[in-house]
């Protein structure tokens, strides 16, 4: 694969420092559905580009850069309280982990599903963040908290979506990460350890977010409406479909 081709793919399957392009763009888009679409489409564009470029070997250095970049964004995400920015960082971190699988010649169709498995929970999180913003003016951990008592459906949706985003079993991210680690470990065990640490940092960031949003006395929460049953049902149904899809995800399970 030639250098220009690699550069173009590296924008959409973010390699540091090109990852700043996605994060800068993501921060500028204010509309939640548009953000969700970007999250769903961005890595797919990268995979399409990779597919149409002349075939070639992905260098070991590129894989190492991708994994370390993923670790960097996961590490940076532990300090974040803004849900939107956290979503962007986790997306950057997750998509970069597709590079080890690309280097091991995994089927592009399988990788599209992995990318979708990473993106769908994050797209849902964008919608949850929008719901929080409409009620409190900001989707920011630690600003109000206690939603579990006052807005149980919104808190439940937040918790489930964050769990899916940090690749808890049986969501697709879990299977995708296991597959990436399995492909990496025989030749570059230290990269597999880095992927594992990245996963750990996602959890750390995720629970910090949850603590700031759903935990607390809830006294600061103004009287606002909870999610409707239909909205809550949408989140639960989408996540249930994700789990159903994950159980048939190729790679680990095929």
């Amino acid at each position: 694969m030639g250098t220009p081709g690699l550069w173009s793919v590296a924008i959409f399957l973010p390699l540091f420092p090109l990852s700043v392009i996605f994060n800068a763009l993501f921060a500028r888009v204010g509309n939640a559905p548009m953000r969700a679409i970007i999250l769903l489409a961005w890595p797919q564009v990268g995979l399409v580009l990779f597919g149409i470029l002349p075939p070639g070997r992905v260098a070991g250095g590129v894989v190492a850069l991708a994994v370390l970049g993923s670790l960097l964004y996961a590490f940076r995400a532990i300090a974040l309280r803004d849900v939107d920015r956290w979503t962007g960082y986790i997306a950057t971190s997750a998509w970069a982990l597709l590079w080890p699988a690309l280097a091991h010649h995994a089927a592009i169709d399988t990788l599209r599903l992995y990318a979708l498995g990473f993106s769908v929970p994050l797209a849902l999180l964008v919608l949850v963040a929008d719901a929080l913003k409409r009620r409190f003016g900001a989707a920011y951990a630690g600003l109000y908290g206690g939603t579990v008592r006052m807005l149980p459906r919104l808190a439940g949706a937040t918790a489930l979506v964050v769990l899916a985003a940090v690749a808890v079993p049986l969501f697709p991210g879990f299977f995708a990460l296991v597959a990436v680690m399995v492909t990496t470990i025989p030749e570059q065990p230290w990269l597999a350890v880095c992927v594992g640490l990245t996963w750990l940092l996602w959890t750390w960031g995720g629970i910090r977010l949850l603590q700031g949003l759903i935990v607390g006395p809830g006294e600061a929460v103004a009287p606002v409406a909870d999610l409707s049953r239909v909205e809550f049902g949408f989140y639960v149904l989408t996540l249930a479909l994700l789990i159903a899809g994950a159980l048939r995800l190729p790679g680990v399970t095929a």
């Binding site: 808190a155 750990l200 910090r208 603590q211």
Partner: peptide, 28 residues
Amino acid sequence: ARSRAAHRYASWTLITYRLGDLPLVLAA
């Protein structure tokens, strides 16, 4: 859910457990 302390210690537990998950995934 009112107790921030309970969640703080619960998250400490989860992080330690996740740290322990890593070697098991590598072994697998």
